[in-house]
Computed example of a mutant assay.
Amino acid sequence: MDHVAVLALFDRDMREGARPDAPDARVERVGKVVRQVGAERGWNGVIWSDLDEAGADAAIAEQVRYFSDLGREFEWKLYGHDKPEDLGHRLRTAGFTAEPEETLMVAELGDLTLDAEPPEGVRLLPVTDRAGVDLVAEVHEQAFGTDGTRLRHQLLAQLTGDADTVVAVVALAGDAPVSAARMELLPGTRFAGLWGGGTVESWRGRGIYRALVAHRARVAAERGYRYVQVDASSQSRPILARLGFQPLTTTTPYVYTR
């Protein structure tokens, strides 16, 4: 993989040329910033910027004013190659809080082996309705220890608004949800985004996460996507590397709360 070329393609497709990730969201291009404005419980934030030292602080202040006037908490999604080099420091100075750094990992679907299956006694259930969304949110809360309200709202809006743009799946051991994940498929892009892969603690280390990655990647390949991308945590990065994903850069969410 040509890392520089694929990263540039990712920036064009998924950031500078971003599409809304939900029916009730819109993407706005204002000066040298691309932002998504979502519902109050949806994702709001800056997706891409092309800033220099002279204009960075003013651009940050403008986004803070804009989202504050809307009454929205928002995220500035900072990548390791974004400019200026001290943009993270400038965001912290402006009142943003940095969440844990992740790694942008990408794989070309033609290079992946996609035959991983869940362990015996575990089955994968496609999520198509509110009951399935509730199972995904339940896993999310158990696996990550965070509230699943925003995820529940976003996933339900996607499924009811345009089901072709999202694939969600939950792993069941008997009737108990033990792992879940989703994939976003935005028309006109070459990247399918893998999100939210999480397994409850007692079921980790059994290959379920790997099976969920393979399942979603097979769907992406069938629908004609060339690449799959993941914002990988330190826990998932080794698994993804063994599957053939390659690190391109880091990504850090900077969150601004009113």
Rank of each mutant, 00 (worst) to 15 (best):
E28F: 01
G31E: 13
V34T: 13
R35D: 12
V37F: 09
W43R: 12
W43Y: 14
W43D: 11
G45P: 10
S49H: 15
D50G: 01
D50W: 00
E53R: 14
E53Q: 12
E53V: 14
A56L: 04
A56E: 09
D57I: 02
I60A: 03
I60W: 07
I60P: 06
Q63E: 14
R65W: 11
R65H: 14
Y66R: 13
F67G: 01
F67Y: 15
S68D: 06
E73P: 05
E73N: 13
F74Q: 12
F74R: 06
K77H: 08
Y79M: 12
H81L: 06
D82H: 15
K83V: 03
K83M: 11
D86P: 02
H89G: 15
H89D: 14
H89I: 09
R90F: 11
R90K: 15
L91R: 03
L91V: 05
R92P: 04
T93W: 05
T97K: 14
T97R: 15
A98P: 15
P100Y: 04
P100D: 13
P100G: 05
P100N: 04
E102K: 12
E102S: 12
T103A: 11
T103P: 02
M105G: 00
A107F: 00
L109Y: 06
G110I: 07
L112D: 03
T113W: 00
T113F: 00
D115N: 11
D115A: 02
E117H: 02
E117N: 04
R123W: 05
R123Q: 08
L124S: 09
P126T: 00
V127S: 11
V127C: 07
D129K: 02
D129A: 05
D129Y: 01
R130L: 13
A131K: 13
V133Y: 02
V133R: 01
V133M: 06
V136L: 12
V139C: 09
V139K: 06
H140Y: 15
E141G: 05
Q142D: 15
F144C: 01
D147F: 02
T149S: 11
L151D: 10
R152T: 15
R152W: 10
R152L: 10
H153I: 10
L155C: 04
L156H: 13
L159F: 06
T160H: 06
G161L: 12
D164H: 11
T165V: 09
T165M: 10
V166P: 04
A171N: 11
A173M: 09
A173H: 14
G174N: 05
D175L: 12
